[in-house]
Amino acid sequence: MNDVLTMEQIEFQAQADQQPIVQHIDIALRPQEFVALTGPSGSGKSTLLSMAGALLQPTSGALSINQTDVLRLNSQEKTKLRLQDIGFIFQSAHLLPYLKTADQLRYVGKLAGLTKQTMDQRIQRLLHMLGLEHRQHHFPRHLSGGEQQRVAIARAWMNDPSLILADEPTASLDRERGEQVVQTLRDQVKESNKAAIMVTHDTRLFAYCDRVIYLDNGQIDHVEASVVP
């Protein structure tokens, strides 16, 4: 089985005369793997996630997504890769306030050039999958925090990406809603044969992950296996 994401000896320096923000990073992610990335503030978690998402170019090392050498791609090719292969989920849902739930997903589908039939079918499948069918005609202001994050998850899945990158997706949610969001994310990773990395400080969420990667001072300190409930 081929890895969805591989990062080998990744290093990143903001400037040539500064200490690396991350260094000696080796990560491989297979389909159906849900991995947590944790560590103290300033340890390089968000920087590493940005490189995995082809938003930030490593200073050195090798990075591939679905056997595509990301470091050889130009700006336009990276944009296409992000649209086709990567789904992003952030701390806040970042929904467009003037679009209803279904239209949030439709907007992403249009950016990716999906046909109307494909978009409509996928929207209905995702809304059903995430229990949002009764909210498809609601604006974000009429949704709860948990519902907004579920819309964000649906939006991230809209283009059927191979890799999901979630940066503190439960930071603005209470415990119950946060665990519901993470469990939904994990279940879809397993059922859809995708892979995901989630940055989190919440140790309670580790139980939903296959592995927990601990970063410290820009390097992998250790990796722990987790038992999924």
Rank of each mutant, 00 (worst) to 15 (best):
S43K: 11
G44V: 14
K45D: 08
S46A: 10
L48A: 05
L48W: 13
L48R: 11
L49K: 04
S50Q: 14
M51I: 15
A52K: 01
G53V: 00
A54Q: 07
L56T: 05
L56I: 04
L56Q: 09
L56N: 05
Q57F: 03
Q57D: 07
Q57P: 03
P58E: 06
G61T: 00
G61C: 02
G61A: 00
A62G: 00
L63T: 02
S64H: 02
S64P: 01
I65L: 08
I65F: 02
N66A: 03
N66Q: 09
N66H: 07
Q67I: 02
Q67N: 10
Q67V: 05
D69I: 05
R72V: 00
N74W: 13
Q76L: 15
Q76T: 14
E77R: 14
K78C: 14
K80Q: 15
L81F: 13
L81K: 14
R82Y: 11
Q84N: 14
D85I: 07
I86T: 11
G87F: 00
G87Q: 08
F88E: 05
F88A: 08
I89G: 00
Q91R: 00
Q91M: 03
S92R: 10
S92Q: 13
A93R: 06
A93I: 04
A93T: 06
L96M: 15
Y98A: 14
Y98M: 14
L99R: 11
L99W: 03
L99V: 12
K100H: 08
T101I: 04
A102I: 07
A102M: 10
A102P: 02
D103I: 03
Q104I: 09
L105E: 02
R106W: 15
R106F: 13
R106K: 14
R106H: 13
V108D: 05
V108I: 13
V108K: 04
G109P: 08
G109K: 10
G109V: 09
G109M: 15
G109E: 08
K110C: 11
L111Y: 13
L111W: 11
A112I: 08
L114G: 11
T115D: 15
Q117T: 15
Q117W: 14
Q117H: 15
T118M: 11
M119G: 11
Q121C: 12
R122C: 04
R122T: 09
I123K: 10
Q124K: 12
Q124A: 10
R125Q: 13
R125G: 03
L126E: 00
H128M: 08
M129G: 03
L130E: 02
G131R: 00
R135H: 07
Q136K: 11
Q136E: 08
H138A: 12
F139I: 09
P140V: 09
H142V: 02
L143C: 03
L143E: 04
S144Y: 02
G145D: 09
E147W: 10
Q148I: 07
Q148Y: 06
R150A: 06
A152P: 05
A154M: 04
R155P: 06
A156H: 01
A156M: 02
M158L: 08
M158Y: 09
P161Y: 00
P161M: 05
P161A: 06
S162V: 05
I164T: 05
I164N: 01
A166D: 00
D167H: 02
E168Y: 01
E168C: 02
T170L: 00
A171K: 03
A171S: 09
S172F: 01
L173Q: 02
D174S: 04
E176H: 08
G178R: 03
